[in-house]
């Protein structure tokens, strides 16, 4: 039996056709190499046993997809004509990674922000972690040398820009790259003020809440 991490990797391409669903996880065994591949998808109990009960399995798949997205950003480094790549290239590469599954993303992000407790409140930590991880990878890819507190302000600035561009992409995919460019052009002033970043973050949080509400989760 293949490991759950291996099956998660195999399930990632299936998100395009089956969404972030238990079905995608169940069908991952069909994608194993010849000789190991199953003839039938996994049973629901097997999916629960390998990846968790109910939405926990879906959250694991979303997390695996997000980790793969960070890995995908390294493509920008490999493909860049300049060394290191520009911040614009790296963030564009990450936005491109979203494109095949754009329709599924609002529900996926809403699911991540939903707590498993009986109290229905929006948990902002997964969204912050998602943006922070992308900002950190972007900084590493572009060879950022920020030190001490500017390490935090730089990443907060990039995370804010990326999150805003990603939210824009969910609503208007065709103009997302132009929106990202315009944000990057303005971000120099943004990164100089931690206060401005926190203000901007609160707007983003409200946007997230709006999207989650619009999906009917709350």
């Amino acid at each position: 039996m293949a490991s759950s991490s291996k099956l998660l990797k195999l399930a990632i391409p299936l998100v395009r056709t089956h969404g972030f669903s238990r079905e995608a996880l169940a069908r991952s065994v069909l994608e194993l190499p010849a000789g190991e591949a199953h003839s039938e998808p996994l049973s629901d109990s097997a999916v629960s046993s390998l990846f968790g009960e109910g939405d926990k399995a879906r959250k694991n798949l979303i997390e695996a997809w997000l980790v793969d997205g960070v890995r995908h950003m390294q493509k920008a480094e490999a493909e860049s004509t300049s060394a290191p790549p520009t911040l614009r290239d790296v963030l564009r590469t990450r936005l491109q990674y979203n494109e095949p599954v754009l329709a599924q993303l609002p529900e996926a992000f809403a699911l991540l922000a939903t707590t498993s407790s009986n109290f229905h409140f929006v948990d902002p930590l997964p969204a912050l972690h998602h943006a922070g991880r992308i900002a950190d990878e972007a900084c590493y890819a572009i060879g950022d040398k920020s030190l001490h507190l500017s390490w935090y302000t730089k990443r907060a600035s990039i995370a804010s820009v990326y999150t805003a561009a990603e939210l824009h992409q969910l609503v208007s995919p065709n103009t997302a790259y132009a929106f990202l460019d315009s944000l990057l052009d303005k971000s120099a002033a943004l990164s100089n003020s931690l206060g401005e970043v926190s203000l901007f973050s609160s707007y983003i949080l409200k946007s997230w809440q709006g999207i989650i509400k619009s999906q009917g989760i709350l």
Partner: peptide, 17 residues
């Protein structure tokens, strides 16, 4: 140490100041 922080992509302490 500053160069090592950048090289190993380590989050610096929040308590710098």
């Amino acid at each position: 140490m500053d160069k090592l922080q950048v090289q190993h992509n380590v989050r610096p302490t929040l308590l710098t100041d």
